[in-house]
């Protein structure tokens, strides 16, 4: 019998718990969790770029925001010439393409030739997050500071008609399905030959290049893939939240996503996803009771984790169990 990797078992366990949850949890909690699952998708995108490919992006909120705005503008019929098109399905396609293409362009610009590495790349993405946030705030077509309001929920018909998907339980299962499929797909990609090449360039780019890999092209594709997943997350967020604002595209969400991934664990996608869901649950629990002390506590825990547990809290637990099992 084939023995499973610990991280896969943890992922399946988390999936099983989440699948069973709507049977016992109140419906408001299921609704909240459905939204947290879109954050988890963003965390997975960032963990793939950062943990697996070594591309520390301080501006991943940009792609989340582009996905949200793309979905919003299309389903609200704001695209010039396409006012009649209101399809959720086309909105998803548009969101994924727009965010993926933006990530590809940023990757093409920063990685070509000698390229930017590590911290330089991080600072450029940080500056880009500020640029995109400013653009969203000052672009009246996108609603400026107010953002896009009344973004419609998921509609199952071909062009914005048919049944609307807004009840917590079905929405939760849809989100869970998308997240599970994304994690499974990206994990398989990480373990494929090309995924191994990405891990190799993370460890030593010069050596990977010397072995004949076109590292610039590999990084560009990986970053575009990560951006597209983040865009999908943004699109699936906005159909639940009903509102796309500049706060989604800029610095603050990018920084928050970084904290989720660092706390959960950047090494494995499952750790990042479990980490963000746990953190958001704690957040909703404590931000009202501890008020202004709660961000301080999160900041202190975050610093402690960075120093003491570079694998993250979930990642460290998975690592220890794996060492015990010898697998």
């Amino acid at each position: 019998m084939r023995s499973w990797r610990t991280v896969d078992l943890v992922g399946l366990l988390a999936l099983a718990v989440l699948l069973a949850l709507p049977a016992v949890a109140p419906s408001w909690l299921v609704g909240d969790l459905a939204m947290y699952l879109s954050y988890a998708l963003l965390a997975v995108a960032l963990a793939f770029a950062w943990g697996h490919c070594g591309l520390l992006s301080l501006g991943h909120g940009v792609f989340f925001g582009i996905g949200a705005y793309a979905m919003g503008t299309l389903t609200l019929g704001m695209l010039p010439g396409l006012e009649a098109v209101r399809s959720t399905w086309l909105g998803l396609v548009f969101a994924v393409i727009a965010s993926g293409a933006t990530a590809w362009t940023i990757g093409w610009f920063t990685f070509a030739g000698r390229g930017l590495h590590g911290a330089f790349f991080g600072i450029v993405t940080l500056a880009l997050a500020v640029v995109f946030e400013r653009l969203a705030i000052n672009w009246d077509w996108l609603g400026g500071l107010n953002g896009l309001m009344n973004v419609p929920p998921i509609t199952l018909g071909p062009n914005g008609d048919g049944a609307e998907l807004w009840e917590p339980v079905p929405l939760f299962y849809v989100m869970l399905g998308v997240l599970a499929a994304t994690v499974a797909g990206l994990t398989a990609y990480q373990r494929s030959d090309r995924g191994l090449a990405l891990a190799a360039l993370r460890e030593n780019e010069l050596r990977a290049r010397a072995l004949g890999y076109d590292t610039g092209a590999l990084k560009r594709r990986a970053f575009a893939l990560s951006g597209a997943v983040a865009g999908l997350a943004g699109a699936l967020f906005v159909v639940q939240f009903g509102f796309a604002s500049p706060a989604l595209i800029g610095f603050s969400l990018s920084a928050e996503a970084l904290i989720w991934v660092a706390l959960g664990g950047r090494g494995e996608l499952v750790s990042a996803a479990v980490g963000v869901i746990a953190l958001r649950l704690l957040d909703s629990q404590f931000s009202s009771s501890l008020e202004a002390w709660w961000p301080l506590v999160v900041g202190l825990i975050f610093m402690a984790v960075v120093v003491l547990l570079p694998r993250g809290i979930v990642g460290e637990a998975v690592y220890r169990i794996a060492r015990q099992r010898g697998r």
Binding site: L56, L58, G118, A119, G122, A255, L258, I259, A262, A292, P295, L296, V298, G299, L300, F302, M303, V306, V307, P310
Partner: peptide, 18 residues
């Protein structure tokens, strides 16, 4: 760990702001 200095000081900035 160069990239971890970014994270650690980001945590510090959160704490100072709060």
């Amino acid at each position: 760990r160069l990239l971890d200095t970014i994270l650690a000081t980001w945590g510090l900035s959160l704490v100072l702001r709060q």
